[in-house]
Design a protein around this nucleic acid. Structure first.
Lengths: 215, 215
DNA sequence: CTATTATCGATTATCGATAATTTGTTTCCA
DNA sequence: TGGAAACAAATTATCGATAATCGATAATAG
């Protein structure tokens, strides 16, 4: 349970606990199978049970933990089937997202994307794995935000935590180096303006990534 | 807040409250904008605040209510933009779902689908609007369950409540009559085994439905 | 008269304690 | 010995009360 570093300064106590535990799970500090006991957590954070329960409830909804009534919560396992399922869904949706947002991209947008890539390269220098992941999510999230569909954006926000867990767990050095490069290539395809090619390139990118990390 | 009829006998108190309020919102008994005040609800159900808060937390995640920190919860409004967004997403995903599950359909499955349609016709006789909706969801849900993708099934479960709210609100008599007929036609297309045709037929079906109900 | 501060009512957020549930263990009897 | 029943430990679910927060309104100062 790490009485560690970051305790976000979100508004409410339950928010802080939620963000802290979520981060620890994504980063793999809290391993799958770990039991989350309300009173223990409340003790660690020096608070009462109520905000802890609220945080756990949110994480349960997100699939970060599994709750069994009257039994408790454990950090959920993440199976390879689950990863495959998520990526199938992601390929379908992200394909749509990039295709529809492509025609709306301005010079400014490309600069923003380039900025994300540069930040990612810096994060690679720093060996900041979680940072790299977050920037990767920012890059892809850009298109989900751009396709003007709240339902799709919400779906992305849910998929994102699962994708991040997967990437954090299965991280292998040789791929984080490549990420920035890959993304630059995607941008060049975007700039051609060919919808089919863009969709295909993104799907291939995701496919390759998934493949490398799943053997 | 209706101290009305149905209070489901789920295991926990919070579950009962959750199911009750959710049903009331979907059925339109709790109109958008209605404030949900924890102590009031707790009083109505003769329980303390804790289970009420838990139920509200879940509904907030599902988008049934909007919560403003330190301010309270309000039954969420459902805008036409939101409906459009949901249906765009639904068309993409359901297209995939029916296309991939089609080749696996057995004689037994067709009978099951036929059963759903018959139940729907009975519900139409009874003028049981909520029942019709639930059976419509069962029909479409069948394919989401069948495509062997947990992520997609979960997505459907989330979309479903929103779709049901939309259908319940915008319900017009002439379309519920047609639903069973439409579904029968979809089955005949399914039985041809032509993936493209099936996907197209389902999308057209959803499109027509949405169109009729949104002017 | 205007702008800032103080107070108030309503409601949420948090608290610490009790009740209920589950699981495992021991006891007791056939 | 085997198996039901009573018990015990751990933990969640629920409770009722207090503290913190927000928006509105009233009071106050300049």
């Amino acid at each position: 349970m790490s009485n560690s570093s970051y305790i976000p300064l979100g508004n409410s106590i339950s928010e802080q606990i939620y963000l802290t535990l979520k981060r620890e799970i994504i980063a793999g500090e809290l391993q799958p199978g770990t039991r989350l006991i309300v009173l223990d957590i409340a003790g660690k954070f020096q608070v009462s049970q109520a905000p802890v329960r609220e945080a756990l409830e949110r994480m349960k909804q997100e699939g970060l933990i599994n709750g069994i009534p009257n039994k408790g919560s454990v950090v959920s396992n993440i199976t390879s089937k689950e990863i495959r399922d998520i990526f199938v869904l992601r390929e379908i949706i992200e394909g749509y997202a990039v295709r529809t947002s492509m025609p709306t991209l301005s010079e400014d947008d490309y600069e923003q994307l380039e900025m994300i890539i540069r930040s990612m390269e810096e994060a690679v220098e720093r060996d900041d794995t979680l940072g790299i992941l977050e920037l990767d999510m920012d890059f892809h999230g850009f298109f989900y935000k751009r396709c003007d569909n709240q339902a799709i954006l919400e779906l992305w926000n849910q998929m994102r935590t699962k994708v991040m867990r997967f990437m954090a767990i299965s991280n292998r050095h040789h791929t984080t180096d490549l990420l920035a490069e890959w993304h630059r290539r995607l941008i060049t395809v975007l700039q051609t303006g060919d919808g089919d090619a863009v969709e295909e390139a993104f799907i291939e990118h995701m496919h390759a990534y998934k493949f490398i990390h799943m053997d």
